[in-house]
Design a protein around this nucleic acid. Structure first.
Lengths: 204, 204
DNA sequence: CTAAATCCTATCCATTCGTATAGGATCCGC
DNA sequence: GCGGATCCTATACGAATGGATAGGATTTAG
């Protein structure tokens, strides 16, 4: 089974390659950037599975996934990420990727996931997706109400109160109240700080 | 040599442990959160070196480093991070940590760095620090003037124009102009978007 | 040296943001 | 059913932000 691992973290790449080859006898190739990965797929196909880091040079988030997906030499493409949130994972899976692998996955689970995906299945850790379907389950997010959570998402996208109000179909004064109360809850002094905090906490 | 590896990415932990033990015969212990790491250090000392992930549950950035540094069982403490920037690295080193290890380091370099640090030296990859000493050298940052760069840093910290003006010792109207022009340069519509863009690009 | 470019400073004004305050709606446990 | 909690709505106002415009200082190219 041939696998291409594209990740700019040498540390992970080096150790993961060793693990996959010694523990499960897979044949691996590596790349540190998205262009390198593309080149590897074109020069040395085919790969049973291509693992792309969500945040590496040239990747540009979902864009890289789209490009790699149409390559002949890449039968299946999966995203691996250390920071991405549930929102991102859902977008990845909706784009038809073979799977989404957070780096909080154990090495053993990853091997199983790789096998699973190369058989044509779509993989994602259930607890990762379930985590937010009903409730945020995040240390910070769980203090916020549903509305406040939605408003905070708007803040992280740099939207104005008016835009958020339109998107959520509520009045602007209401948005302003939610904004103010969520500042208190997360300890922000203004909207920029709120957005940065949410980002640091890995929300959205 | 006993090493404690604290990182919430199981994938890295599993593979790194295997690597360190088989390739260089080090004795490792692991933790997935900062509290776990603290417990390990107290229950099972001493460790020659403690590696702390900069962003893991309970870590709180530099705060975790300070706490761990005063522990008896942790002779030396180093920070490991996949996303932190040069600014953070400098703060870490200034706090008296044994070293700063980006995850872009190769596995081989990491082993060398671990040995180096356990001998009492302070380690940091030179190219990582040098990268921004004279010039930003960043695709996005190099379009900005020095002042605009400094103002943008203030934005990412959620400061008001007035605060930024005070910190840089310039007038507030000037800050407002820099803010406006840097919006144009980086394609932001407001300060929150500017901050998020800078964050995404890994500045600061 | 002159001219262009870049940066710092400044003023004016419309819009947005942040906060306080308050009434009404809904859902819950008791 | 009746508090109590939570959420949505609204008004009002001072503070901060975003944009337009313009003059002066400094640097760089020719």
């Amino acid at each position: 089974m041939r696998i291409l691992i594209a990740d700019d973290h040498d540390l992970l790449r080096d150790t993961l390659v060793l693990y996959l080859e010694t523990e499960s006898g897979m044949e691996t190739e590596t790349a540190a950037t998205f262009p390198e990965a593309l080149e590897a797929v074109r020069k040395n196909p085919p790969f049973d599975l291509v693992l792309l880091d969500f945040s590496m040079p040239g990747m540009n988030g979902l864009q890289g996934l789209e490009i790699m997906s149409v390559e002949e030499g890449a039968q299946r493409v999966a995203i691996i990420s250390g920071t991405a949130s549930r929102d991102v994972a859902e977008q990845v899976l909706a784009s038809g990727a073979a799977g989404f692998l957070p780096k909080t996955l154990s090495a053993k689970s990853l091997v199983n996931a790789v096998r699973f995906m190369s058989m044509g299945e779509q993989y994602a850790p259930l607890d990762f997706l379930r985590g937010g379907e009903d409730r945020p389950a995040h240390p910070l997010a769980e203090k916020l109400s549903q509305r406040e959570y939605e408003v905070l998402e708007g803040l992280t996208q740099g939207k104005s109160n008016k835009e958020i109000a339109r998107d959520l179909d509520i009045r602007e004064p209401t948005v302003k109240l939610h904004v103010k109360t969520l500042y208190r809850k997360i300890g922000a002094a203004n909207r920029t700080q709120a957005a940065m905090i949410a980002k640091d906490e890995g929300l959205f």
